[in-house]
C-alpha cells in the first residue's frame, strides 16, 4: 500500500471523528441541567460511530460516487468516508431545511442520491435495498457496486440471511459488511451469536467471507479491495466482518453500566497515527495540520447548519408523495 493511500485512510478517519466530536459537543451543550433527549439544537437519538472509522475508511477508499452504500442507524462514518457534503449532512442532523432530507429524515435517515447513499434505522433492513441497487447497476450495464452495512447484532436478523442467499443466487455486485463492535446495545456478542465468525455464514450462502480481527484500517482496505474488484468483475457478492470497537455509548445518554470492556478499548485513530509515524509516513506536525484541516471543514459545516432556516411547519405535508 502506498503512502498516499495510507495518509488518505488516516485523513478520512480523522475527518469522521472530528465531525462526531463536534456533534458530541453541540448535542450535549443544551440538554442541561435536566436531560431531555428531545431538547436542544440536535434533538432525538444520536448514535455515534467513534471507533468504527477503520471500517468505513477502508471500504470507501475503493469507491467512487457512482457506487452505493446502504448504511445503518450509525451512519456518519460511512457517509463521510463516501464523500457526503458535510454541510448537507450537518444541516439534516440539525433538522434544517437545507439538510439532505429538508429536516424530514434525521441522522438515521440520510439519503443522498448524488453519491447513492442511504441508511435505515431498522437493524439489518438496509441489506435488502442494497440488493436492489446492485440489481439496477447490473441491469444498467454499470460496473458499480453496492455496499450493505450492518452490525453483528443485525447478522441474526432474517433480512440478513434472506439477502445473502438472494445476492449469491443472482450474483449481485454487493459487498456485505458487518461491523462487529461486540455490543448489540447492551447484549454482548457471545450472548447473541452462536458462532464466532460470520465469515462462516457467508461460506454457507456460497460466497467468500473474511473476518478481520483487529480493527485495522489497512486490513479492511485489503479485504475490501478484493471483494469490490470481484463484485465489479461480475463475480458476485462477498462478506467482510470487522471486529471493531464502539468507543462511546449505543446512543448519547447511554450510561453503559452493562459494559466491562471500557478500560481495554483501543482507539484506532491514534493507534494508526503511531504506526504511520513509526513508518515515517506521518509527522507530529502533519497530525496537527490534518486535525486542524478537519476541524475547520467541520466547523464550516456546523456554522452553515446552525445559520440555516428550520423547515416551515406549514410545509409538513410536502414530500409524502412525488
Amino acid at each position: 500500500m502506498d503512502n498516499e493511500t495510507r495518509l488518505g485512510l488516516y485523513k478520512t478517519m480523522v475527518l469522521s471523528r472530528s465531525f462526531e466530536e463536534a456533534i458530541l459537543r453541540d448535542y450535549h451543550a443544551d440538554k442541561k441541567p435536566v436531560w431531555d433527549i428531545g431538547a436542544g439544537l440536535i434533538p432525538g437519538e444520536m448514535h455515534l460511530s467513534a471507533g468504527q472509522e477503520p471500517v468505513a475508511a477502508g471500504v470507501c477508499a475503493h469507491l467512487t460516487s457512482d457506487d452505493a452504500i446502504s448504511s445503518t442507524h450509525r451512519p456518519h462514518h460511512f457517509a463521510i468516508a463516501h464523500g457526503m457534503d458535510l454541510r448537507l449532512l450537518a444541516s439534516e442532523i440539525f433538522g434544517r431545511e437545507t439538510g439532505l432530507g429538508k429536516g424530514r429524515g434525521g441522522h438515521m435517515h440520510l439519503f443522498d442520491p448524488t453519491i447513492h447513499f442511504s441508511c435505515s434505522g431498522i437493524v439489518a433492513e438496509g441489506y435488502p435495498s442494497a440488493l436492489g441497487v446492485a440489481f439496477a447497476f447490473q441491469r444498467q450495464g454499470k460496473d458499480s457496486v453496492a455496499i450493505a452495512v450492518t452490525g453483528e447484532g443485525g447478522a441474526n436478523q432474517g433480512a440478513f440471511h434472506e439477502s445473502l442467499n438472494l445476492a449469491a443466487l443472482w450474483k449481485l455486485p454487493v459487498v456485505f459488511v458487518i461491523e462487529d463492535n461486540d455490543w448489540a446495545i447492551s447484549v454482548p456478542r457471545d450472548a447473541s451469536t452462536a458462532i464466532r465468525s460470520n465469515a462462516v455464514r457467508a461460506t454457507s450462502y456460497g460466497m467468500r467471507g473474511v473476518r478481520i480481527q483487529d480493527n485495522s484500517v489497512e486490513g479492511v482496505w485489503d479485504a475490501a479491495k478484493t471483494a469490490i474488484e470481484k463484485a465489479r468483475a461480475g463475480e458476485g457478492p462477498s462478506l467482510i466482518e470487522v471486529h471493531t470497537v464502539r468507543l462511546w455509548g449505543h446512543f448519547e445518554g447511554d450510561a453503559q453500566a452493562y459494559r466491562n470492556d471500557l478500560d481495554s478499548l483501543i482507539d484506532p485513530i491514534p493507534a494508526y497515527a503511531n504506526q504511520l509515524e513509526s513508518d515515517g509516513v506521518l509527522s507530529p506536525e502533519m497530525v496537527e495540520s490534518i486535525a486542524q484541516d478537519a476541524k475547520s471543514r467541520v466547523e464550516d459545516a456546523f456554522d452553515f447548519a446552525k445559520s440555516s432556516p428550520l423547515p416551515s411547519a406549514a410545509e409538513v405535508e410536502r414530500y409524502v408523495f412525488a
Partner: peptide, 27 residues
C-alpha cells in the same frame, strides 16, 4: 431477465424492489 421468480424471501425481494426503484428502474 425481466420476469424473475424469487426465493421465498419476501423481505429480501421487497427491499430489492425498493432499491432498484431508487436507482431508476420500475419494478
Amino acid at each position: 431477465q425481466r420476469i424473475l421468480d424469487t426465493p421465498i424471501s419476501e423481505t429480501a425481494f421487497m427491499g430489492l424492489a425498493t432499491g432498484a426503484a431508487v436507482e431508476g428502474m420500475r419494478p
